[in-house]
Design a protein around this nucleic acid. Structure first.
Length: 258
DNA sequence: ATGACTTGCGCGGCAAGA
């Protein structure tokens, strides 16, 4: 089962890139972030035409997440823990896979800049909610994949120039500590289960020729429960999508599970 | 040294992103 995540920075812009990639890579499940539209505006027909079921949790102008699946799915929208939170950043699906089911969440974790400030406080509160919810999900002992744009640079090797991010909400010690707290519940970070290499990025800024200089950061992650990690067969970053004309700033990252 | 793009909204620039 091939499961991917991609922050598309508006689903309606350059839908052709997404459709091309879906045909080329043939993922079974795709987690999308920053669709930047309400559910009614999502280009559902074009994606369904490629054989996908579509579940969205949209919002006007900002945020918005979705899951595409070749298999039927049951869906929950929103991250538990704060009924007053109106930002669409979490959608979760259970998907039958052989004799078991796989649970997949599409996560758009808050950016948090500027830090310190209200936005950074919201980021840390959101991470606490994600930790609480994940603790409950892990009790199910299912194959679980938490995939998305975490807006977290886990380690110095995950940025071309870590010193440039020293005071940024994506790299502050408190951010990285929360991310470790999440992993320490018993999750495996898929890419780091397969390689210790530096220079592997999923985001390059639009500005200042960041792509041409490979000045990137690794902030899109797939976190696996033990039952999913046991099935891990490979990880790939589709960085060639960043080289296309009018690219998104993020590229897809994906896992293959038995 | 600084700023450097791109999006939605909606028609003038601003907020937000990372």
């Amino acid at each position: 089962m091939r499961i991917a995540t991609w922050n598309v920075n508006s689903i309606r812009q350059r839908l052709d890139h997404l459709l091309y990639w879906l045909k080329e890579v043939e993922p079974d499940v795709v987690c999308l972030q920053e669709i930047k539209c309400v559910d009614e505006a999502f280009p559902r027909q074009e994606i369904e035409a490629l054989g996908y079921n579509v579940a969205t949790h949209g919002q006007k102008t900002f945020n918005g997440v979705a899951i595409l699946s070749k298999f039927p799915m049951e869906v929950e929208r929103g991250l538990p823990g704060d009924d007053a939170d109106e930002q669409a950043r979490y959608i979760e699906a259970t998907i039958p896979h052989g004799a078991t089911i796989v649970r997949v969440a599409s996560i758009y974790l808050p950016n948090g800049n500027p830090a310190p400030g209200d936005k950074y406080d919201y980021k840390l509160r959101w991470m606490n909610r994600l930790i609480s919810h994940t603790r409950e999900l892990l009790k199910l002992e299912e194959p679980l994949v938490l995939a998305g744009d975490y807006n977290v640079i886990p380690d110095e090797r995950d940025a071309r120039d870590a010193s440039a991010w020293a005071t940024d909400a994506l790299f502050l010690p408190a951010t990285r500590a929360k991310f470790r707290e999440l992993l320490d519940l018993g999750l495996t970070e898929a890419l780091r289960a397969t390689t210790d290499a530096d220079g592997l990025y999923t985001f390059w800024d639009y500005q200042a020729g960041a792509w041409q200089r490979n000045n990137g950061i690794r902030i899109d992650h797939l976190l696996l429960s033990p039952q999913a990690a046991d099935r891990l067969r490979g990880v790939a970053i589709d960085s060639e999508m960043r080289a296309r004309e009018k690219p998104r700033d993020h590229v897809p990252i994906r896992v293959d599970l038995d």
